[in-house]
Design a protein around this nucleic acid. Structure first.
Lengths: 341, 341
DNA sequence: TCCCCCTAAGTTAGCGCTAACAATTAGTTT
DNA sequence: AAACTAATTGTTAGCGCTAACTTAGGGGGA
């Protein structure tokens, strides 16, 4: 197996043309799937391309077409499960659509850093930009920037100034909480992520609304920070209070922490207290007991994202939005409360 | 704040030249920091560039220089902590050095998928490639491929056919195990990662060697799969056997699982059993008790990687290797065994 | 039969930039 | 003062490709 070529100079279109006995333009036509090429000619050209191992020069192509076939992905917090997987989803979708993906990740979400990264993309003359920066601050920056290329923001709320692809976090939270309500729980706590993360805010909101709809109290909200440790602390706190029968954690790591706290406090899951996580990380299914959680379709999200970006690239800024619905994965950490048994 | 331009056609070098009253070549010279430009001219040109918001066209530049200023990063298992952070490190280092980063990630490590991804990079005419695919299979593929551009593999063992930047996993494992030996432990178990991961293999090796050097038995090796669940199982298994006083887990997640198993089995950490993890994930410090673990400098690794790649890009394939040393982070899960007290 | 049109090719002119060479100026040297 | 240097700037020729225009052959309708 060999990729690349050992020869001096890589073959150019003219070389292919010569070998196939046509003009370089005909080669170009074959490559671009133009209709007016006879089947025989097409075949001869394709054969020559194969023989020479010819590959189009992207730079030359970009120069004349004014498109780079590259989309820029601006990210942050890439060591977190959500952003990392969103990136993966976007990246795969982009490659499927024939686009190159250039990544820049922010180590801090400040206007200066954002501007830098966008400059970097403009320098590369990307055809479009996907933003995976799940912080409120990004939204503010974004709505004040006027971009020269289409931009799709992942995960933001719907806003006419921005094209958005998002997982419906509110719905995810509702799914989780409604599941607990349906089981008969009436005291349902929530450990949230840091509230400057938009996903965290949306999940809090979903939790609150669902409780309101069921006419239940939303008094027990504990602020976590996505870490297992904060979930553990929340779990201990709840165990001490003793009057909640269910906990909705804003991610699986915090759920993991809570699980351990409950076990330490002598609370059995799900007999004494039910628990729902969020993310459906691979380990969720292997916790003991296996965690009921909410699965977000990151692949699907990435695909939607590219779809919107391509649309905006073709038709100008749309300000549209595409929402992916998460789904509840019921495993073994949820059951009816003791009173309802 | 505004990035990009609202005008019809973005300014080109000629526009800058006209405004500054020089030739386009002089503009090019200023941009490329050529020595033979008078300070006054330079200043005038820079002013014109600023006024017009001029940015060089990368495609045109690439076409003539035959370099794309882009490096391709080939990755896999990007939802794992190690690979994700290595990518981050490489990405930051590349950007610092003025390179664009194009990412392709493998969903499966097969020769066909690898070939596809490399083709994709060649199509983009990247200047260099960084491979972050920590599987033995990748190594085999890589050594049979003859590349047209320099390639640096991250994490592999030293091999003259490949330029390599790696964290010294054997040393990391040694650090962990020696720490346990120094505390007086004599029965030290290991939960490993899947053995087709090179890091997992190296850590097993480091564990084994260090034990051999201390003339201790390496009989208790449990195969994990990086997941918390596998760590949990291993923990239960060890608790049942009852004769080991320390466990070295090949990552923090497995350590987390083990921690829980020990707690369930009534083994106190570190009083009854010591535990060392690997990775120093952010949550490690917040586990209860805080986890002793091994920190790998991913930033440093990324920087070394780029350094090597730039070297190879300038001087041709070197087959050199650069090794980053991990460091032990002692927290609260390790203590002398009861017998040694 | 002539003319028009449609198809399948070829020719030409850049896209915006850099490298190589040519030209101009000023500063020395003989 | 002629001639030679070095520093600075301008001019020219592509890099490899696509878009727009041009040309060469066939059909078919009058």
């Amino acid at each position: 197996m060999s990729v690349g070529s050992e020869t001096r100079r890589p073959p150019v279109m003219e070389d292919v043309a010569r070998l196939a006995g046509v003009s370089h333009q005909t080669v170009s036509r074959v490559l671009n799937a133009h209709p007016n090429v006879s089947p025989q000619t097409r075949e001869r050209v394709e054969k020559a391309i194969g023989e020479l191992g010819y590959r189009r020069n992207t730079a030359a192509r970009s120069l004349v077409t004014r498109r780079s076939q590259t989309i820029g992905v601006l990210g942050s917090d890439m060591s977190h499960y959500g952003p990392a997987n969103t990136l993966l989803g976007v990246q795969q979708a982009a490659r499927d659509k024939g686009y190159f993906v250039s990544v820049a990740s922010l180590s801090e979400v400040t206007p200066a850093a954002i501007k830098d990264a966008l400059e970097y993309f403009m320098m590369q003359s990307v055809d479009g930009i996907v933003v995976i920066v799940p912080h409120e601050a990004m939204f503010e920056s974004l709505s004040t920037i006027s971009m020269a290329v289409p931009l799709v923001a992942v995960g933001f709320g719907v806003d006419e100034r921005l094209s958005v692809a998002a997982v419906n976090q509110r719905m995810g939270a509702s799914l989780a909480v409604q599941h607990l309500v349906d089981l008969g729980h009436t005291a349902i706590a929530h450990v949230s992520g840091p509230p400057d993360w938009i996903d965290a805010a949306a999940r809090i909101d979903g939790w609150r609304r669902t409780l309101a709809q069921a006419e239940l109290s939303d008094s027990v909200l504990i602020r976590g920070n996505w870490s297992a440790e904060s979930g553990y602390r929340a779990g201990l706190e709840l165990a001490a209070v003793g009057n909640v029968t269910a906990l909705f954690a804003a991610n699986d790591q915090m759920a993991l922490g809570a699980l351990r706290a409950f076990s330490e406090a002598g609370l059995r899951v799900p007999q004494d207290i039910s628990l729902v996580g969020y993310d459906d990380q691979p380990e969720a299914a292997y916790l003991v007991p296996p965690l009921t959680t909410v699965n977000q379709g990151f692949k699907e999200l990435g695909a939607r994202c590219m779809q919107m970006l391509l649309f905006d690239m073709a038709n100008g800024h749309s300000g549209a939005s595409s929402v992916v619905n998460p789904r509840l994965v019921v495993r073994s950490t949820t059951a009816p409360p003791r009173a309802a048994r």
